[in-house]
Design a protein around this nucleic acid. Structure first.
Lengths: 237, 237
DNA sequence: ACCTGAACACCGTTCAAGT
DNA sequence: ACCTGAACACCGTTCAAGT
């Protein structure tokens, strides 16, 4: 009746009959990641990817339904790069904390992911494996039933939400090649109607931006984990 | 020496000499929002926007340097739709909580924003006004110095990170017009190697998805606020 | 089974030219 | 000051045709 299937690469078996005929999915994903890392999300086109694989411009369409599916593959690869300890050995809190820091580091190393988070679902095997592991950690902590998911979702949301603006910041502020003086003027200009923000600016201006971001990330992470831990204590204690 | 300026609409004065000659920035923004709401991010093109303004395909370029600047304008409009009480009256915790719920509601009503969060900086007047207000709330709570920003960042990151996957979910799962049976099969397929995730699936399957998302959002929000509140208590008490 | 090439229908952006 | 139109250099995707 209602029809309309979900569309995702993960619903189709990878193309490759038996031997080693054409390209493999891994080859394609590797080339895609290289392009993305080198030229960013806008730098990836099906034609360029074809060229990189020394193939025709549209050859990738044999392996993948469309460009979004290609990006789904690349996205899941990122999930695979996140390191996380064995929950039963490290304990839930260290597991969660290590996951958070590792995910941040991985995304910062592959900034193009930031724009994908708001566009693609994470249904790949690496993403699911991570969800599975994190659920183990939160179950170990003492969460029960749906609370396991809620805790997991909360933690992951925090990391996403923290890293995304950090990437955007780095990208529009252009990293090194930006004149710090013009940067200060920029903020003074846009924030000219908000004295409190301006005051904060001059307060921060001399501190190393990178260090502040790390402290900020830790501050929030500890808060989130503390808040989750509070859920585990019976109300009256 | 190092050159390279930051590029943002908010650094340039809006075009319009004195009278009411051509289009105004507001007209353009309104048309942009309408297009985005109606057709989504991919549905917005400079040509379509020109047509909607009954103007040539490239007329908007007189008001805006490029498409990203146009999106910056639309993005800030969203920040303006978020409602928030006066911190001094409502208290910090209710202010923060109302902000979180309102921001979620606004983004869900304009799903195209989700993809912008990972692409554009929030330097517009509405975004800054909100930052200013939230800072007031956290100062009121008792945070001092940089902790005010850290707390603010933590809260906002949580909301971002929570809403983004929710949007993606809704969009790829296609809302109403999706066959629920094929949906279940989808998950069973992708999660086939993760028994724990599968078990969770059947557990959740009969519950109304929308209600769960709201409970989940509240669970995390309370946790985050509790965690922040814990920061305010002196260590020994 | 795998790949190519041409072709279609779009893009964002530049720029000389118009009023 | 404001807007147009043509033009450029790209896109993603389809599809008939090749091997």
């Amino acid at each position: 009746m209602s029809g309309q299937k979900i569309s995702s690469v993960w619903l189709r078996e990878p193309r490759q009959s038996g031997r080693t005929p054409g390209r493999s999915r891994e080859e394609i994903v590797r080339a895609t990641l290289e392009l993305l890392d080198a030229e960013g999300l806008d730098g990836l086109s099906m034609r360029k990817l074809g060229a990189k694989l020394s193939a025709g411009a549209t050859s990738v369409y044999w392996y993948v339904e469309n460009k979004d599916e290609l990006l789904e593959l690349a996205y899941d690869e990122i999930w695979g790069k996140i390191t996380i300890p064995v929950p039963e050995e490290a304990g839930w809190r260290e597991t969660a904390s290590t996951f958070a820091h590792s995910m941040r580091a991985v995304i910062l190393a592959h900034p193009w992911v930031a724009a994908l988070l708001g566009r693609l679902p994470a249904l790949g095997p690496n993403a699911l494996a991570m969800a599975d592991l994190l659920r183990r950690a939160f179950r170990l902590a003492g969460f029960k039933g749906l609370d396991i998911d809620y805790a997991n979702t909360t933690l992951t949301a925090y990391v996403f939400g923290m890293v995304i603006p950090e990437i955007v910041w780095r990208q529009t502020m252009g990293g090194e090649e930006l004149d710090p003086e013009s940067m200060r003027q920029t903020f003074e200009h846009v924030a000219r109607d908000f004295p409190d923000l301006l005051a904060r600016l001059t307060e921060v201006n001399d501190l190393p931006a990178q260090a502040i971001r790390e402290i900020s990330f830790d501050f929030g992470l500890v808060s989130v984990l503390d808040g989750l831990a509070a859920r585990l204590r019976p109300a009256g204690s």
